[in-house]
Nucleic acid binder design. Structure first.
Lengths: 123, 123
DNA sequence: CGGCATCCCTGGGGATACTG
DNA sequence: CAGTATCCCCAGGGATGCCG
């Protein structure tokens, strides 16, 4: 086992705030997609499987408000809007990646535990 | 800027799964609280501000099912139930802590961006 | 003490249609 | 193309009450 981090109530609250911000259904995926580089609106729409236009818009607005992504409107015809990660957004990608790595590493363990649990309670 | 992690669709999906599992309103706080050591049901209830009995029960069941926490019933009178982090749960604490650190570090940046955004759209 | 069971209500989010 | 607006549904989750 690694050193168990101690419980810090203040840190807990911060974690909750972060999760409230990026823990919604789509934010992480948008940030991750923008990790590749700038994207236009419909490029993101295609890159993120299952997201609706409405939710993409709302998610992008939220991330922009929090300073995680930038937005540039080019008023051509047809209009063009580009999104990209700010430095702040890039920095968030690091711990997010760590969480993804955890998921990749321990996925089978979780699945096994889940199956064992489900068998135990019959079903 | 640090090296920007590349976008990996498979990794993205995994991140989503992890967030679906621990990104709910209470799981992280329960895991963090148990990072201190084993707790009884009502100890957790008191440690986690605002959680209802119902949600604590549901959250604990979910975490137990996923193998992140252990549960031991002592059928005394009154009954006693202890919860603790499994090794798997401990390992999750690491990336979660990283996310918490990010929140602590960048909290003011996010708040400033948010305030600036809100001023910009008037309100 | 440590739960289920039940009721109920809010809001997250999909589908669809319209606009600049 | 890139939104905004509207309708609508249902799952998350609080409050309350009962049980071993």
């Amino acid at each position: 086992m690694t050193t168990p981090p101690q419980h810090d109530p203040a840190a807990c609250i911060r974690v909750s705030e972060v999760l409230g911000r990026v823990g919604d259904k789509w934010s992480i995926q948008v940030v991750s997609a923008l990790g590749k580089g700038p994207h236009r609106f419909n490029e993101l729409r295609r890159a993120i499987d299952g997201i609706s236009q409405r939710m993409l818009t709302l998610t992008l607005r939220g991330l922009e408000r929090d300073g995680l992504i930038g937005r540039k409107v080019t008023p051509s015809i047809p209009p063009r809007v580009d999104y990209w990660l700010t430095d702040l957004g890039q920095s968030l990608l690091v711990p997010v990646q760590a969480l993804g790595d955890w998921a990749l590493t321990h996925r089978t363990s979780v699945d096994q535990a889940r199956n064992a649990y489900d068998r135990m309670v019959d079903e």
